[in-house]
Design a protein around this nucleic acid. Structure first.
Length: 105
DNA sequence: GCCTTGACATTCG
DNA sequence: CCGAATGCCAAGG
């Protein structure tokens, strides 16, 4: 079942997101080894078990918009030091997870 | 097997 | 940035 493998990697990556940064579904899907599976990332996170403590609030879509139907996410992001704009979107240009420097710095 | 839906991504206006 | 349209992939009916 690649599904479990995929979700497992997704969880690992989401947990690897540094505090104060956010990652997009497409990014996570790509890092998981399954590009264009962005939707599956969302489903994996939605079915994400609580004991893994998945910081799904750091996961936003390509437009920097938060998870629809989840108002608490904004509160969580604010707690992480990520202040949303008045529109309710995150500044990807500032808070986007720069995984390009992982291991380089 | 076909159609619809979804915590999406990307491009255009 | 927001909304609409198109594309992509998987699960459910």
């Amino acid at each position: 079942m690649n599904r479990k493998e995929f979700s497992d990697k997704v969880y690992a990556i989401v947990l690897d997101i540094p505090l104060g940064s956010v990652a997009t579904y497409g990014m996570i899907a790509f890092l998981s080894g399954y590009p264009r599976r962005s939707r599956m990332v969302g489903q994996a996170l939605h079915h994400a078990p609580d004991f893994l403590c998945i910081p799904c609030h750091r996961v936003v879509n390509c437009h920097g918009r938060l998870t629809p139907g989840w108002a608490d996410q904004k509160q969580l992001l604010s707690n992480e030091g990520i202040h949303l704009k008045e529109n309710g979107c995150v500044d990807l240009k500032k808070y986007l997870w720069n995984f390009a420097f992982r291991g380089e710095l």
